[in-house]
Structures are given as structure tokens and as C-alpha cells.
Design a protein around this nucleic acid. Sequence first.
DNA 1: GCTGTGACTTCGT
DNA 2: CACGAAGCCACAG
Length: 109
Amino acid sequence: MQPETLNFFDKVYEVAKQIPYGRVTSYGAIANYLGASRSARMVGYAMNGSVSKDVPAHRVVNRKGLLTGKHHFDGTNLMQQLLESEGIKVVENQIQNFENVFWNPSEVL
DNA sequence: GCTGTGACTTCGT
DNA sequence: CACGAAGCCACAG
């Protein structure tokens, strides 16, 4: 059995790519699904290559629904624009109705 | 091989 | 109830 550590990044991409339209998830949720609830930070770290993986990292936010990674997208309001483009209300980098748009990987996967 | 850092989470005051 | 600090795991240098 290969250590998940090697698949950790790949798994993060897999889950992130499976996020349905108009839905968002948290790093902890993905990490928890991968069995690495303690590595929530790594989830975002992996997202650094999300662009190369076609991963909608803009749909992934922290547990508070705050677009913490917005600064890593382009440095402006790109991430927020993308979320609003999907029907998600975002104010001050914070997702409104976060619980309403929250998507749990365990529910589908 | 060890140290540092990080798009987080959770406990504590 | 809100803010602050510590912890944890994994990758990069």
C-alpha cells in the first residue's frame, strides 16, 4: 500500500475537480475525506499547482468561508468574481450562505 | 537529513 | 462571545 502522502496532492485535485457547480468546500473537509484532517494546510499548499491541474481552487475556501487563498489566485478579486459567477454571494472575501453552498465530499464520494 | 514555511484547524484565555 | 496562540502534516530548500 502506497503512502497517501504521494497521492495526497493528487487526491486533493481529484476532490477539488469533483466539486459541483455553485458549491464550495473547505480545506478541512477535503483533508478529512483524505484522512488527513490534520493536514488541512497542505490542501491549500497543493492548490498552488491547481492551475496546472484545472482545479477550481476558487471553490475551495477555509472553514469560515473566507477566501483566504484569494491572494494566491491573482492578488485581486478574481477568486471572488469566479464565485459570484457561479451564483455564490461573496462579500469582503467572505462567502454568504456558506452553509448553503457548502459541499461535503463525503456526501458524494 | 534537518529546518522552515504554509490557501488551516482547534483549543485556550 | 471574540480574539490569540499553538499544533499538526506535508512539501521545499
